[in-house]
Design a protein around this nucleic acid. Structure first.
Lengths: 244, 244
DNA sequence: TGCATAAGCTTGTCTATACAAGTATAGTTC
DNA sequence: GAACTATACTTGTATAGACAAGCTTATGCA
């Protein structure tokens, strides 16, 4: 290691820090270190792989970010307790999602106006009662089948030109993400029943189960938008993968 | 910068790479660089902050991992398009979840036996038809109210003593995470209707909407367990936050 | 025995330097 | 004008050395 060694990527196609990472991942997956077990120190891995400590450090640091190991200064690196499966869930723009499946998306606009926030709307969006808000109600179709009823309130301060957008061409999600810098999003997913109006728009009975996603985005303390997304059961599901 | 400078943590309480990170995050949140905008190069930040390039590089690399910036070799660093809101969703053990709310959890076991995998079960778990599998059916209650019906298949190779566990004391999820190293989890969330048996166990009608989570975990190519978790609508929701 | 101290391990971070590799552009040649 | 080339700039990564900070254990003193 005293001689400067050229990065030996050609042999494995992987950068050294990736090789160390993959090795540790493989050993963890093989059960070599059960959760809580002390794993090799950086120094040990340095001699084992013949790389510098910074390289090993990067590998271990990234594994820590991924939640695969716990590191304690002065003590060592431990295989993580995997009692929580943390998954990266991606909420996508529905247009993108439908197009990615190779299908055709279109939308119908049933409401797009300015309102004085009712108690209900004010609470949903997180603004004062009576504040000026934009309100849209749009139904999204996949290959002609109603997939989502989108009932949305928007804070005019964050998107003053919102009502000027042609929502049959650009989805509110897409437009808002372009216009308003978003730095926080809360969402909840639950099963429930559609309102009478939603049922009518989606061609359902009010007793048909739906998957309902509520999403509120804000930039710090300033609320941007709140959406209630109603999907007929069976036509929509959220999927996720956890893969270290 | 020619003189070796002692890490000036005391002044801000933050490591230099964290300071750079926080600065960039704040500017991004303030809309300084709208999505797609070219951000300062590493060299520029080096002179601006008076730190080494490796320090700036770490800050930018971590921002990239967090999805806040896109980096292209040979071109530069760009403010990320936030058209995808990627959220860290944590799937927790239901016992933990109920206890964390300060409530009381108990469970009733309605089935716990070995079976030859039916076509249906084999497909769900991902094993060959007729394979020996464990099958449990457990209802979880929060303060006496039925919250979840857990219909689960387990690969005996991964947890040979599974049927010996007292599931009124330890949940299958908890036991399996202890016993079998898990390195992959797929899940889907949808609204739907309970089966006749599930409806009976949960005290519902078969027309009452439910939130249904299907989760399959494996260790590489070896399937560990598959669970169908049925929750009465309104009694359960999945929540998530996205916060850079 | 009890306690303080020092040594020796661990991880956490920063630096200066080096080279590899990808991209854009200005300039040159045909 | 079109195609090639050299250059300059970008990010990607590796390295050796240094020091900080936290934990454990052995050591010496009272």
């Amino acid at each position: 290691m005293s001689d400067r060694m050229p990065a030996l990527r050609a042999s494995h196609g992987l950068a050294p820090f990736e090789q160390v990472k993959q090795y540790l991942k493989a050993q963890l997956a093989a059960g070599e270190w059960t959760p809580g077990t002390l794993m090799p120190s950086e120094a040990a891995l340095v001699t084992q792989f013949g790389v510098s400590r910074m390289t090993v450090n990067r590998a271990l640091r990234e594994l820590q970010l991924e939640g695969l190991v716990d590191r304690v200064q002065g003590v060592g690196t431990f295989a993580a307790q995997l009692h929580r499966v943390s998954s990266s869930l991606v909420i996508r723009d529905i247009h993108e999602e439908i197009v990615a499946r190779g299908h055709i998306h279109h939308a119908t606009v049933h409401l797009a106006r300015e309102e004085q926030a009712s108690a209900h709307a004010a609470q949903r969006l997180g603004v004062a009662l009576g504040t000026r808000v934009f309100h849209t109600l749009i139904v999204h179709y996949e290959n002609g089948v109603a997939l989502q009823c989108e009932d949305r309130y928007v804070n005019p301060e964050c998107a003053p030109d919102y009502l000027g957008v042609d929502f049959t061409k650009i989805t509110p999600t897409h437009y808002l993400l372009d216009v308003a810098p978003l730095r926080e999003a809360h969402f909840s997913v639950q099963a429930g029943l559609p309102s009478a109006r939603e049922a009518k728009l989606l061609g359902l009975k009010t007793t048909d189960p739906c998957l309902i996603v509520a999403r509120r985005t804000s930039n710090g303390s300033v609320p941007i938008t709140q959406a209630r997304l109603v999907h007929p059961a069976g036509h929509y599901q959220i999927e996720g993968v956890f893969q270290p």
